[in-house]
Amino acid sequence: MAPFSTPDSMPESKISDRDLINRLWAGHTEALAILYDRYASLVYTLALRMLSNPAEAEDLTQEVFVNFWQRRQYDPDRGSVGSYLTTYTRSRALDRLRVSSGRANILQRFQRITAASSRSATPFDHASQQEDQQQLRAALAQIPDTERQVLEIAYFQGLSQSQISEKLGIPLGTVKSRSRQGLLRLRDLLRRHQA
């Protein structure tokens, strides 16, 4: 295998995700190490939150990155690496949790979901990643607790709205309106932050 080198000794932090993907697809598996350093915490954090088991979260993190390299289903033109990895991690975590009622829908929606946020991350994006996370946390803190609660259950536990209704003991219509309103509110708050 050809040695992995960066043009003009470019520091790793300045290589864009797209360049890393191109190198990885060209057989430079070392590029996966840099992508791992950028996204492993995000993947592991999500896996740990959903599976509540460090060993399983480690296992899923390994599965996500090895499959990312092996299957080459990620298309840089269709979304960011971070978005793809979190969507894939969530999907696989839900599979492990055997959320049977949501499974078919989740798989069906996988392609559509990864098509969103169709911009590939640049090094600048990584530098501002922490700031983005703070904005997101601030935005989530601003939406009503009841709306945040249904969104988090839907996302991290993969429960359907009727299951959430049953779990919380509230009408299905209320779950529906809270989750939709919560998502719209979150989107508007983030847009305001970005403006």
Partner: peptide
């Protein structure tokens, strides 16, 4: 909206593997 939904896990306190 989809991108907003996808960003929800970013709100979690980061836990390195």
């Amino acid at each position: 909206l989809q991108a907003t939904w996808n960003r929800i896990p970013e709100s979690l306190p980061i836990e390195p593997p």
